[in-house]
Every structure is written in C-alpha cells, then in structure tokens.
C-alpha cells in the first residue's frame, strides 16, 4: 500500500461522488459543490501521477497543471454562482409580482 494508490483511489471516489451529485442534485448551489468535488478528484489523479517513491522528487509538471486547474475552476465557480444569484433574484422578484 503506497500513498499514490490510496489517494489515487480516493480521488476517483471523490470524482464519482461529485458526478452523482452533479447529475442528481436538486439544489443549484449543491450542484456547484458537486462539480467542485469532481475537480478535486481530477486534481488528485494528476498529483498522484506526479508522485514518485521517496527520496525521488515528484514530477513538477502535473503540479503546475493542477494549480492551473484550480484557478480555472474558481473562475468557473464564480460565474456559476453569479448566475445563481442573478437567477434567484429574478425569480423572487417575479414571485412578488
């Protein structure tokens, strides 16, 4: 049992949990959470791929890729959340009418 195996399977499980959530979640905010879980799962896979048995240093390229992925994901999340806020505002003002 090495860390890469353990965390690799963890990552795949997290990705799958996110996938179920993204397909089934009713709540808009929770769907964003689920997608974020997927992205963490994908990050796990790349970080695990970079791991080398110590004392060898890990491959830094996937690390850079995951950092890029994290920034891309926060951008997408921000846009999705802005849409949610806008939509909720539009819907509740309609209810008042």
């Amino acid at each position: 049992m090495t860390p890469d195996l353990i965390y690799g399977l963890t990552g795949i499980a997290v990705f799958a949990i996110g996938l179920v959530g993204a397909l089934c979640a009713q709540d808009r905010l929770r769907r964003v959470l689920a997608l974020k879980l997927c992205s963490v799962g994908a990050g796990f896979l790349l970080v695990v791929g970079a791991w080398r048995t110590p004392p060898m240093a890990p491959d830094p390229v996937p690390h850079a890729l995951v950092i890029t992925g994290i920034v891309v994901m926060v951008s997408a999340t921000a846009v999705a959340l802005a849409l949610i806020r806008r939509l909720q505002t539009l819907e509740s003002s309609d209810d008042d009418d």
Binding site: G43, V47, P54, H63, V66
Partner: peptide
C-alpha cells in the same frame, strides 16, 4: 497533497 509531496498544489488548493 502535502503527503504526496505537492506543497505548491496544497497551498493553491
């Protein structure tokens, strides 16, 4: 990710 010796990624996450 720190355990997987990826401190940069851990910081970013």
């Amino acid at each position: 990710w720190v355990r997987l010796s990826a401190p940069d990624v851990a910081l970013a996450e």
